[in-house]
């Protein structure tokens, strides 16, 4: 009897020991915590659905989103736009295109704009913030005053000003304008955490070992400083999508009305709000849901990476 108990206890100890021995890096640990967090799972699911739709939309769309269908144009009246009918799930838009197909394809446009803008913003921000944090001195002062100036503008106003600099507006105008707004945020964030790393014990220890400055910056400072930047990038994806939609809405995006883009669809639906409110309602909902997905994921990523919330 007693030996049985002892055996069970021994097994349990072995089990615990085996579990404790597993190698976990910071990233793996964060992933494991994310997988247990319902908020993260919700966010990730929304993004996954959105990404699948975006990639497969040309295949999934029941009709060609760029062709006017006679069945629809025939019924277009100034005071009536056809609603759902066989073959056309959500009916027509104001121009006689299949509304549902255009919504689907819009996901792709939105994803491209959001991801590209964030990538460009992060890349430039990392270079600037990394330089400021690693070199310090006048480089730091110069770059940080520059970001101060950029940050002193309301973000949408800044994006509009940048977009307005281009002679001809296109999809890239939106991407670049949105990216530029994000640059100072990333630069400042990385610079701050690089500075914190610079005064950390392990950087002092590496210096005491005569490690090259290059190695110290790239191996000992940068990887430790990137955590907040990754979190911010996820959150920025959400705002980038909203900002891009806003720019399209204001007519600073691609002027081609055929292009299916949620912000543009929203803008063009303005005149038909009384005739068919769904034309504005669905793109708006889509934008909100996707932005929410990225925000949820970003927030839970922040939580997972934050050592203070560790159990």
């Amino acid at each position: 009897m007693a030996s049985k108990l002892m055996q069970r206890r021994r097994d349990r100890i072995d089990e615990l020991a085996a579990g404790a021995d597993e190698g976990v890096s910071l990233a793996k640990d964060a992933m494991r915590r994310m997988a247990r967090n319902p908020v993260a799972i919700t966010g990730a699911s929304i993004i996954a659905v959105f990404a699948v739709l975006a990639v497969l939309s040309p295949v999934l769309a029941p009709k060609d989103p760029f062709i006017r269908y006679n069945e629809l144009t025939d019924r277009l009246r100034p005071d009536a736009i056809p609603g759902p009918m066989p073959g056309f799930l959500l009916g027509s838009d104001q121009n006689g295109y299949d509304f549902f197909s255009r919504l689907l394809v819009g996901a792709q446009q939105t994803l491209i704009v959001g991801v590209m803008a964030t990538l460009i913003g992060v890349s430039i921000g990392i270079v600037l913030g990394g330089l400021a944090g690693a070199i310090g001195g006048w480089v730091d002062t110069l770059l940080m005053r520059f970001t101060d100036i950029m940050l002193s503008f309301p973000s949408l106003l800044l994006a509009i000003s940048i977009a307005a600099l281009f002679a001809r507006t296109s999809q890239w105008t939106v991407i670049i304008a949105v990216a530029m707004v994000a640059v100072p945020i990333f630069a400042r964030l990385l610079r701050g955490s690089m500075l914190a790393q610079r005064h950390s014990d392990h950087v002092l220890a590496a210096t005491a070992l005569g490690v090259h400055r290059r190695t110290i910056v790239f191996r000992h400072m940068l990887p430790n400083a990137l955590g907040p930047v990754i979190v911010q990038a996820t959150l920025t994806l959400a705002t980038a999508i909203i900002d891009a939609a806003a720019l399209s809405f204001l007519g600073l995006g691609d002027p081609d009305p055929v292009r299916a883009e949620w912000g543009l669809m929203l803008a063009n639906a303005q005149d038909y709000l009384e005739v068919k409110p769904e034309l504005a309602f669905y793109p708006a909902i889509a934008i909100i849901v996707v932005a929410l997905g990225f925000t949820l994921l970003g927030e839970s990523l922040r939580e997972a990476l934050d050592p203070k919330t560790r159990r």
């Binding site: 890096s25 014990d201 392990h202 005491a208 191996r219 990887p223 430790n224």
Partner: peptide
């Protein structure tokens, strides 16, 4: 060579 006081913070956590 130098050995520091706090071994946890003197090692790079991500390497």
């Amino acid at each position: 060579g130098m050995v520091f006081q706090d071994p946890l913070s003197s090692l790079n956590p991500v390497v």
